[in-house]
Amino acid sequence: MNNVVKLLPLAILISGTLQAATDNPWYVGARIGGTSFDSVEEPLKGQDLDKDDWGGGVFIGYNVNSWFGLEGGYTYLGQADYANDGFEVQGLDFVGKFTYEVSKSFDIYAKAGGFIFDADNGVNNQDESGVSATAGVGAEYYFSDNLSARLEYQYYNQVGDKGANKPGESDVHFYGLGLVYHWGAPAPVAIIEPEPEPMPEPAPQPQVVQIEAVSATLPFAFDSDALTQADIDLLQPVAQQLVDYPNTQLYVVGHTDSRGSEEYNQTLSEERAAVVAGYVGTHFGIDKSRIVAQGKGELEPVAPNDTEEGRAKNRRVEVFVPGFEMTK
């Protein structure tokens, strides 16, 4: 069991080395479930084995991009009991994780890599360390940008060693549930445009005055088209420009991040634009003929979509009243 003493501190070290950051692709999690031993080899073969047990572990991961990440951690795979003791397996996983985004809240993934194992047979007092291949599949549901849950299966190929004076060898299957915390989910970023410059004093003779454009960018929450009080505050100078100058026109363009299908994001961006246009028209008495609203979906990002901060910046509605010249 000396290798157990070596593996556990390393797993604890891996799970506790990071600090939260605003823009951080790291995540950490834990999992628990059932395990099953099969395809056993000597000296386990032919024994009256209890092949089912429980297992679990902790892990840490790094998202290289939106579809690929790296994971490592400690996993306990339980014990196949026989002769008042048994064949116990634990170790360290190092895998690549390949993800396919089904919707904004749901992913499926596959994992493949290696497992540095410690196999201990308490019946014949044999202990073996080594590396075996491992692979798995799973599904992940996001409750929020920070928290998700996993349902997964993972296969460990021929863990241990067979033959005389060996602990034995077995395939091990793990199936269970996991909970994952993702660091770096950003708060919405509001971009406040400056107030238009005051109009110059009237000259004795007519002169051309340049009225500056007014715009604002309204951030939206994940998968939402709801206006917040902060959004309404940002709209005030834009709406006032429309009230002050009845010949001006308002342009409203909705955008989304890249999570979800392109069709869904196009519809969501149009809904966001319609909510903003409807609010301005209703609360400030602006005729619909003066408002042009459209959605661009995920096609015009202002930041990369492979980070949480970037996706938050892309979930937005841009409002714009063009500048113009007038004679005073």
Rank of each mutant, 00 (worst) to 15 (best):
E270D: 12
V238C: 02
P237F: 04
S224A: 09
T248Y: 00
P246E: 08
Q240C: 10
E262L: 12
S224N: 05
R272L: 04
V243D: 00
D233F: 14
D244C: 15
D223P: 04
I232F: 11
H255L: 07
A230C: 09
L242D: 00
Q229V: 14
G254A: 09
R272P: 11
E263Y: 15
Y264Q: 13
I232S: 05
Y264L: 07
P237G: 08
E270P: 11
L235S: 01
E270R: 11
E263G: 06
E270T: 14
R272C: 08
L234G: 09
R272Q: 06
A239R: 02
D231C: 15
D257S: 04
S269T: 04
V253A: 06
T267N: 13
V238A: 03
G260N: 04
L227I: 03
Q241E: 10
D223V: 01
D244M: 15
L234T: 06
L250V: 01
D233M: 14
S261G: 10
E263V: 13
V252C: 02
D244A: 15
D233H: 12
I232D: 06
A239S: 09
A226W: 01
L268V: 02
Q240S: 11
S269D: 05
L227Y: 03
Q229R: 07
Y264P: 01
D231K: 06
V243C: 05
P246Q: 00
D223K: 08
D225Y: 07
Q241A: 15
D257R: 05
A230D: 15
Q229L: 15
V243T: 07
V238G: 03
L268D: 03
E262A: 13
Q241H: 08
